[in-house]
Design a protein around this nucleic acid. Structure first.
Length: 708
RNA sequence: GCCCCGGUAGCUCAGCUGGAUAGAGCAACUGACUUCUAAUCAGUAGGUCACAGGUUCGAAUCCUGUCCGGGGUGCCA
C-alpha cells in the first residue's frame, strides 16, 4: 500500500463508474484486486480484468485495453505515471521514476520515512528466550533469542508499545538432577569462568546416569512378568476386559483396555504401588469393577510405540520376575548388582535433593542460590553480546506458589475440576484434551506456573497482547493455556499468541546430549568470530585499530547468526552446519552488510549532499528504478512482518534490496558519474539505500559496519 | 487412534490473502578485478511444486483424500 496504488485504485474506480462500464466498485475493492507484477518490466501496479469479464460480458483483454485508454485520458494532467498500458488482460501502470524519486528520497534521507510508525496505543508483551538455569545454552536457544529480539524491534517500529520479557526456569527437576550429580559425584575443580556451562555439564552427566535405558531395556521397577489366567468381557463397558493374571503365588484381577494378548501369554504386570508412565498405580474402580494394578502396553514399558497393544514375552520367560532384570543390558552393571536397586537408589538421590529444595533446607538452598547466579551471569553475558534487550525478567520461582493458589481458587469457583485426584481444566468443549494443572500430590506443574504468569502479565503489566516465543513442541500446551485463561474470565485470553518455531538440527539429526553433539553457544561464538577475523578481516591488520577489528568481527558474527536463524520459515527446522555458516557467501547476513559497507565507503569520499541540488529526474537507469521501487516498500514490509510475526520477511526484503543495490553498483558509478549533477543524484539514492539497509538490519537485531 | 506442522532444482531455502515465463543461495560450468571494496557482478545448466481428485477463466498457492517426514497427545518442562 503506497501513494501510487491508492491513486491507481481511485482512478480506476472512477472510470469504472462511468459508461460504458457502469460498475460500482469502491476504491478499496479495486485496491484488493490490484497486484504487483512479478516481473518489473510489466510495471509497478497491475489491474487484472478477469473478474470484470463476466459482468461485462466482454473479453478481459478488451476491457483492459478500453480501461487503459480511459484512465490514461483521465490522468493526462498527472506526471505520476510514465506509462499506462494494457497487456493482454492486464492494465499495467509504470510509475514515473523521477516522480517517485522526488518524494521518496528526501523522505528517507531528510524526512521521517524510517521513523517509528504512529503509536497504536497497544501494549504487547513479547516473552522469549526462557532459558533454564543449570543447563547449557546452545545454538537452538540462539534461534529463540534472534526471533524474539527481532520481533520486539519490528513490533516497536510498527507502533506497538512493546515489553520484552524473559522467563527464566530456575526451579524444577532439572536443577535437582544437576545438583544431585554435583554434590554426589563431582570431585574436580570449579572453574573460574563459564560456570553456567559447567553446570550444564553437570546436568548432562546426571541425565546420563539417570538414563536407565542404558541399564535395561525396560526401566520400570515394580513391573513383573505374569501369566494370563483368564479374560472376560467387562459387564458395563465394551472396550474393557477383566483379566486375571498370576505372578509368583498371587492372582490379581485387572481391568484392561489393551489388545493383542490371549490366555496363557506372559505379559508385563504393574502391581499396585509401582510407577508406570510417571504415575503411581493404585487400586481403581472401572465402571463398577475393581482393578488391582495394570497390564502394560508396549509403550508403557518402553518396548514399543503402541499404546494399546499389550507386550507379550516369549513363552519360556520366567513368571514373577522384574522385567527390568529380565531385559537388563549386558555389561552395564556388574552381574551381581541389581538393576532395580540401582535405579531406585539413583532416583531416590534426585528426589531427596528436589524435596530438600522445596522445603527450603538451608544448605541446599544456599547451593541453589549460588549456582543459579552462575547461570544468570552467563545469560547476561550472552544477551549483551547478542545485543538482545529485556525490559522485565520473570523467574519461575516467583510464580510457582501463586500458581498453586490460583488453581485452588478457580477450583472453588467451579471453573476447574478435580479428576483422578488431580486438578485441571476440562477443555472438551474446545475439542482439546484435559489440561492438568495440579498433580494429585498437590505439587505444581509447568502449566500451573504459566497460568499464574499470564495473570501477572494481564493484571500487573496491563498488556493488551501477549506473545510467547516458544518452540513448536509446545503448541498444544499453549492452546490449552489460552483456553483455560478464557474459562477463567480473562478477556484478553484471545489476544495471547504462541509463536512456534522449529528446531535447529544437525545434518545427522537432532542435537542430543546423549550423542554428545550439542553445539554450545560459546562454541558457535568463538568459531564464528575466529573465522571472520582470520578469513576476512586479517587484511586490515595494521590499517585498522585492534578495537575496530574486534568490534567488526563481533557485529559480522552477529549478522551471520541472526540472519541465518531468521531467514527461515518459523515452522521449519533449520539444518545447522557450522562450517557452512562460517564460510558461506550469497544469501547471508554478511552479504547484506557488505552492500552497506560499499555504500558507506563511497559516501565517505563524497561531499555532504545538499538537498536543494538533487536533480531526481536524472535517475533513469533501470537498476536505479528497481532500487527505488524496493525502497518504497520498506514500511509495508515491516508492518506486515509485525502483524504476522515473521521477521523473516525483513530478511527477504533486505536481501533483495542489497541484491538490487549490487546490480546498480555495477551499472551506475557514483564517483565516476558522467556529470556532477548525476553524481549528486546518485549519491542521494545510495545514501537512501544505505539508510534503509541499516534500518532493516537494525530491526533484525544486526548492527551494520561502515567498512568490512 | 486422534490433533498440529511440513513435503518446491542435487543440497539449503524463498514464493502460499489464487494471476502473466515457479525464484534465490550453495555445489558444477563460462566470463568480468590498471575500475566507487571481487564477502561482488554477468551468464550456462538444473523443476511431474510428494501423489490423486475437486473448485475456478486461471492452482505451487484454496478444498478433499492418499503417501512420506516431524511434533504433540493427564500427573516432564
Amino acid at each position: 500500500m503506497n501513494q501510487y496504488s491508492k491513486l491507481v485504485s481511485t482512478e480506476i474506480a472512477k472510470v469504472l463508474r462511468e459508461t460504458p462500464f457502469e460498475l460500482d466498485l469502491s476504491v478499496d475493492d479495486v485496491m484488493q484486486l490490484l497486484e504487483v507484477p512479478s516481473d518489473s518490466s510489466h510495471g509497478d501496479h497491475a489491474f487484472p480484468c478477469f473478474t470484470l469479464a463476466k459482468q461485462l460480458r466482454k473479453s478481459p483483454a478488451m476491457i483492459a485495453s478500453d480501461l487503459a485508454d480511459r484512465v490514461q485520458a483521465q490522468l493526462t494532467e498527472s506526471d505520476a505515471f510514465s506509462q499506462i498500458k494494457s497487456v493482454g488482460p492486464y492494465v499495467n501502470f509504470h510509475v514515473d521514476s523521477s516522480h517517485r524519486a522526488k518524494s521518496l528520497i528526501p523522505a528517507i534521507v531528510f524526512g521521517d520515512f524510517l521513523s517509528r510508525r504512529p503509536d497504536k496505543a497497544c501494549r504487547v508483551m513479547v516473552e522469549y528466550s526462557q532459558p533454564n538455569t543449570h543447563k547449557a545454552f546452545h545454538v537452538g536457544h540462539t534461534r529463540n533469542v534472534a526471533l524474539g529480539d527481532a520481533l520486539v524491534r519490528i513490533c516497536e517500529w510498527a507502533g506497538y508499545d512493546v515489553i520484552a520479557a524473559n522467563y527464566i526456569g530456575d526451579v524444577g527437576a532439572h536443577i535437582a538432577k544437576c545438583l544431585w550429580y554435583f554434590r554426589t559425584f563431582y570431585t574436580g575443580e570449579i572453574p573460574d569462568e563459564r560456570r553456567g556451562e559447567f553446570l550444564g555439564e553437570m546436568y548432562t552427566r546426571a541425565v546420563e546416569l539417570l538414563d536407565f535405558s542404558l541399564l535395561t531395556r525396560a526401566p520400570h521397577p515394580g513391573v513383573v512378568t505374569a501369566r494370563v489366567q483368564s479374560i472376560q468381557p467387562h459387564p458395563n463397558k465394551k472396550n474393557l476386559q477383566i483379566v486375571k493374571v498370576e505372578s509368583g503365588n498371587q492372582v490379581n484381577q485387572v481391568v484392561c483396555g489393551g489388545t493383542g494378548f490371549a490366555v496363557g501369554d506372559i505379559v508385563p504386570y504393574a502391581n499396585v504401588g509401582s510407577r508406570v508412565g510417571g504415575r503411581i498405580v493404585s487400586v481403581a474402580d472401572f465402571e463398577g469393577v475393581e482393578s488391582n494394578g495394570m497390564v502394560c502396553s508396549e509403550k508403557e514399558v518402553s518396548l514399543g510405540d503402541d499404546n494399546l497393544k499389550i507386550f507379550v514375552f516369549p513363552n519360556e520367560t520366567l513368571v514373577g520376575e522384574e522385567i527390568a532384570e529380565i531385559l537388563r543390558v549386558d555389561g552395564a552393571l556388574p552381574p551381581t548388582q541389581s538393576v532395580i536397586k540401582e535405579i531406585e537408589k539413583r532416583e531416590r538421590g534426585v528426589s531427596e535433593v528436589l524435596h530438600a529444595l522445596e522445603q527450603g533446607e538451608p544448605e541446599i538452598t544456599e547451593l541453589w542460590k549460588k549456582t543459579r547466579q552462575w547461570s544468570l551471569d552467563e545469560f547476561d553475558e550472552i544477551y549483551e553480546w547478542l545485543n538482545a534487550r529485556f525490559d522485565h525478567i520473570f523467574y519461575e520461582s516467583d510464580v510457582s506458589d501463586s500458581g498453586k493458589s490460583v488453581v485452588k481458587e478457580f477450583l472453588e469457583k467451579g471453573v476447574l475440576v478435580k479428576s483422578e485426584g488431580a486438578i485441571g481444566a476440562d477443555l472438551s468443549q474446545f475439542k482439546l484434551p484435559f489440561f492438568l494443572l495440579l498433580k494429585s500430590d498437590g505439587t505444581g506443574l509447568y502449566s500451573t506456573k504459566d497460568i499464574a504468569l499470564a495473570q501477572l502479565k494481564f493484571e500487573k503489566f496491563k498488556v493488551d497482547k501477549s506473545v510467547y516465543v516458544v518452540d513448536y513442541s509446545q503448541s498444544l500446551h499453549f492452546q490449552q493455556v489460552f483456553k483455560t485463561l478464557g474459562l477463567m474470565g480473562f478477556e484478553k485470553a484471545d489476544l495471547c499468541y504462541h509463536l512456534p518455531y522449529g528446531l535447529v538440527v544437525l545434518p545427522e539429526g537432532k542435537m542430543s546430549s546423549r550423542v554428545g553433539n550439542i553445539i554450545l553457544f560459546s562454541e558457535l561464538q568463538e568459531r564464528l568470530v575466529d573465522t571472520i577475523r582470520t578469513q576476512y578481516l586479517s587484511k586490515y591488520e595494521g590499517e585498522w585499530s585492534e578495537d575496530e577489528i574486534n568490534a567488526s568481527a563481533r557485529r559480522i558474527a552477529i549478522g551471520t547468526i541472526k540472519y541465518g536463524m531468521l531467514n527461515h520459515d518459523n515452522n521449519k527446522n533449520i539444518v545447522f552446519e557450522l562450517t557452512e555458516w562460517t564460510s558461506r557467501t550469497g544469501n547471508t547476513g554478511p552479504y547484506v552488510m557488505y552492500a552497506y559497507a560499499r555504500i558507506a565507503s563511497i559516501l565517505a569520499e563524497l561531499d555532504e549532499i545538499d538537498e536543494n541540488e538533487i536533480q531526481y529526474e536524472l535517475l533513469t537507469h533501470e537498476t536505479e528504478n528497481d532500487v527505488m521501487r524496493r525502497l518504497a516498500n520498506f514500511p509495508s514490509v515491516v508492518c506486515e512482518a509485525a502483524e504476522s510475526y515473521q521477521p523473516q520477511l525483513v530478511c527477504v526484503y533486505v536481501y533483495t534490496l542489497a541484491k538490487d543495490f549490487n546490480r546498480m553498483y555495477e551499472n551506475c558509478p557514483v564517483k565516476q558519474a558522467e556529470t556532477e549533477s548525476l553524481r549528486v543524484a546518485r549519491a542521494a539514492l545510495i545514501k537512501a539505500t544505505g539508510m534503509v539497509i541499516k534500518k532493516a538490519l537494525e530491526l533484525i537485531g544486526v548492527e551494520a559496519v561502515e567498512r568490512m
